[in-house]
Design a protein around this nucleic acid. Structure first.
Lengths: 164, 164
DNA sequence: GTTGTAGATGCGATCATTCGCATCTGAAGC
DNA sequence: GCTTCAGATGCGAATGATCGCATCTACAAC
């Protein structure tokens, strides 16, 4: 489990305060955004609300559609930019599950990953512990902090391997 | 090192012959394509030629531009479709290094991967052996054959971590 | 509460990628 | 060589995602 708002965003100039603790619900979303030097705009709160209402693995367009129902003036670009910001902040994870569309999900629970079969399209959940060796190697060899929040690994499942 | 033409493509109906050996040059590209039930069209050979002429990490548009110099009638869609086919065949690897553009490279030598710092944009090469634990776990737990040809892992490099 | 301003938004243009469909063609069978 | 047709291509439209820039606004300072 990780903090809700993890790190500073690229262009943040002032020093970033430390991260709010994990495991809380988002009653005070606005304050959390402010606490890391981010503005709490209605558009951003709408994006977060959309995630809370809906399930996982939303596309940008699905989020935009949900928001438009309540606030028709919110722009598509803003949704994309907000998603980019939240991704950089570690609030959400971005994944390309194939099919040419990226999907997003809140990072408020255990990270998980997917094995995607490019023959039959089947998607298998993969526990996060499998990625520990990579994080460790990146840190030990290069001092690099790998932020692998929601990885999609392509390949072929056991059934399609048998088809050859 | 892996075979040049690795596996069948999704929609191949006939049984696929085995893979041609690695480590050869591409004098007989056309025959290799045919040997796995793929058509050797001039457009496809042009795409492969573009890779051989140029360096690594080409974008679809760069490939298209190179081909257009020689054959102005080749269509952009064809380049995209050819890249998709070659990716599924394991001939090339597709990677999103950030910046909203995908890049492609031939898989005729050692696979390698990248650590991409999302603060400063720095790109660090990562050896393929780091990914072995993932391949093993996917195989052992789920019988899944993970084809990780050119992975980009985002995070923060040692210098940007110190900046906080 | 007013003000100043860095940063966020709206808007439209543009770029990256995919799709549908009519046409064309590589290569297998004769 | 000729025929056949699954599969590849060209073309244009549609979708997904990003960018430039003028305007607006959240919020810090007073």
């Amino acid at each position: 489990m990780r903090g809700f708002l993890r790190s500073k965003v690229r262009v943040l100039t002032a020093s970033s305060p430390t991260i709010s603790p994990p495991d809380q619900h988002y009653d005070d979303l606005a304050n959390r955004l402010r606490s890391i030097g981010q503005r709490a705009t209605p558009q951003r709160l709408l994006v977060l609300a959309a995630f809370q209402d809906a399930g996982e693995h939303l596309t940008a367009d699905e989020i935009y559609a949900r928001i438009s129902e309540r606030s028709p003036t919110v722009n598509r670009s803003t949704v994309y930019r907000t998603l980019e910001t939240f991704r950089d902040l570690g609030v959400i994870a971005e994944t390309d599950l194939g099919g040419g569309v990226r999907r997003y999900q809140l990072l408020d629970h255990e990270r998980h990953h997917h094995l995607v079969c490019h023959d039959c399209g089947d998607i298998i959940d993969l526990d996060d512990d499998v990625l520990e060796p990579i994080r460790r190697a990146a840190a030990e060899r290069y001092g690099f902090s790998a932020e692998i929040d929601h990885l999609a690994i392509f390949g072929r499942c056991q059934f399609c391997r048998g088809d050859e």
